[in-house]
Simulated assay, not measured.
Amino acid sequence: MIRLMDVSYVRLGTLDLEGASRFAVDYLGLQVSEHRKGAVCFKSDARDHTLCYFEGNPADQAVAFEVRDKQDLDMAASELERLGHAVRGGTESEASSRHVKGFIAFRDPSGNNIELVYQPERSGRRYFGGRDAGVTGFSHVGLCSSDVARDEQFWTSVCNARVSDRIGDAPLLRIDEVHHSIALFPSDRSGIQHINHQVETGDDVMRSYYFLKERGIPITFGPGRHPSSSARFLYFRGPDAMVFEYSSGVKSIADELLYRERQFPFEPKGFCSWGAKPQISQFG
């Protein structure tokens, strides 16, 4: 079994690197950690970076997960190849640009680009955001899935993810005590469905709601509260139609033996206990 320790970073291609970078700093509230030819990296916590925009096709996206060490990375590569996944080892130059010791890349069953990394760098400098959004760190991703049952099987049997809850057929998967690090949503395309950053308080969620709304940033869902994770949330649209989420107060699941997954309906009340109505097409 491939043991994922944490979700590490996302990489997003963009045709407007300057505009995407400005959004990441001025609106999302991240901090530039590295600006190099054709790419800009951003930090949101103690890690070297958790988001990288690079010049390229906006459909070129990747999510990275951390594994413990080189031995676990090699074991993961062998297991993936045994199951028929084409695995590519990252070059030394590519690993350096990602600020990791080493990595492999492959596609999950829905065609999403996944990277497994070991020894991602931590920064010696604390995160200081481009605006006071209250961001405490990168937390989870939503992934598009052409077959959620098949993909759930991959993440929970090939990897160590566990189902926390379901909204309709869409599973919310944890790899540690945090309620979920991966959410799978039915889709006719591959790619990242949304990117989540945690913020410190519900007040931060509301402050960002007014801040973004006043500046014409499209709000796609919320403010609201997820009945599954208990988090207060806000979804909004960024460059290249990517959806970002702020949330605060996400549930932790400490007792694996006692916890049982729950089922919520794939309709507005399954997504928000306050009554906010999402664009359901956003999640399916």
Rank of each mutant, 00 (worst) to 15 (best):
I2E: 09
I2R: 07
I2V: 15
M5N: 15
V7M: 12
R11I: 05
L15N: 12
L15W: 10
A20S: 15
S21K: 06
R22P: 03
R22D: 03
A24G: 05
Y27I: 12
Y27P: 00
G29C: 07
G38A: 06
G38R: 02
A39C: 10
Y53E: 03
Y53A: 00
Y53M: 01
F54Q: 01
F54G: 00
G56M: 00
D60N: 04
D60I: 00
Q61W: 02
V67C: 01
K70A: 15
D72V: 03
L73M: 06
D74T: 11
G84H: 04
V87D: 00
G89Q: 12
R98N: 07
V100S: 02
G102A: 15
G102R: 13
F103A: 06
I104N: 01
D108F: 00
N112V: 00
N113C: 11
N113E: 15
I114T: 02
I114N: 00
I114K: 00
V117Y: 05
Y118K: 06
Y118Q: 06
Q119E: 15
P120S: 07
R122F: 13
R122I: 09
S123W: 02
S123L: 01
R126F: 12
Y127M: 10
G129N: 04
S139E: 10
S139Y: 09
V141M: 06
L143Y: 04
L143G: 04
L143E: 03
V148Y: 05
V148Q: 04
A149H: 11
F154I: 06
W155I: 00
N160M: 05
N160Q: 07
R162Q: 15
D165M: 06
A170Y: 02
P171D: 10
I175S: 04
I175E: 03
A183V: 14
P186T: 13
P186I: 12
S187M: 08
D188M: 10
G191H: 02
H194A: 02
I195D: 01
H197P: 00
H197C: 05
G202D: 07
D203A: 10
D204Y: 04
D204G: 03
V205R: 03
Y210S: 10
F211Y: 15
L212E: 04
K213D: 09
G216C: 09
I217D: 04
T220Q: 12
P223H: 08
R225K: 15
R225D: 04
F236G: 05
R237E: 15
D240Q: 09
D240T: 01
Y246M: 03
S248G: 09
S248E: 10
G249F: 10
K251Y: 03
K251L: 15
S252V: 13
I253L: 13
A254C: 11
D255L: 14
D255N: 15
E256I: 13
E256T: 14
L257F: 13
L257W: 12
Y259L: 08
Q263M: 14
F264C: 07
F264Q: 09
P265A: 11
P265C: 10
K269T: 12
K269I: 11
K269N: 10
F271P: 02
C272A: 12
S273Y: 06
S273C: 10
W274Y: 14
S281D: 12
S281C: 03
